[in-house]
């Protein structure tokens, strides 16, 4: 993560040169600095900084989209025009290993389509979620693993 420090320094330099010590100046400096580092990326072989930041941004956008979709689905079902409520408690075997991966996955699950993370087993191999539209528990399990967990692991590893 040394490139992050360099990137922040470049942003600081941009702010100093422009004498614009505010949020817009920082954002502009950070984006410009990132672009410069990206152009110079042959200098840093094996650096995962770019993939991580871009992956992080893409993940955030995807998550916001999912929050809208899920809030819409839950809202429709509350008013009585959406899918019938068919809750279930489902165990999901975890491929995520570190604390950060599991935390991010659990938080994302809570914020997205009709699912809510409830508990992680003490051996950290299983995540228990409560799903609201789980007529078929295996589909929910497969979708969570293939959709969310795959995205998180691809971004972080």
């Amino acid at each position: 993560m040394n490139l992050l420090v360099v990137n922040l320094l470049l942003a600081l330099a941009w702010m100093a040169v422009n004498a614009s010590f505010n949020l817009m100046g920082f954002i502009a400096g950070f984006i410009l600095g990132h672009l410069i580092l990206w152009l110079a990326r042959p200098l840093f072989p094996g650096e995962r900084y770019f993939r991580r930041t871009w992956g992080g941004c893409a993940y955030m956008l995807w998550l916001v989209k999912e929050i809208f979709v899920s809030a819409w689905a839950v809202a429709k079902s509350v008013i009585g025009v959406g899918d019938a409520v068919k809750p279930a408690v489902i165990a999901i075997p975890l491929d995520a290993k570190t604390d950060f991966e599991i935390t991010l996955l659990a938080c994302s699950i809570t914020l997205t389509p009709g699912t809510l993370s409830m508990d992680v087993s003490p051996d950290r191999r299983t995540l228990y979620i409560h799903a609201m539209f789980a007529a078929d528990p295996d589909t929910v399990r497969a979708e969570t693993k293939a959709g969310m967990e795959r995205r998180i692991l691809e971004m972080l590893r």
């Binding site: 279930a88 408690v89 489902i90 409830m118 087993s121 299983t126 228990y128 789980a134």
Partner: peptide, 12 residues
Amino acid sequence: GTGVDELKGTQD
């Protein structure tokens, strides 16, 4: 109306 409960009764 809850379907399966895969947590109930396990060691977790």
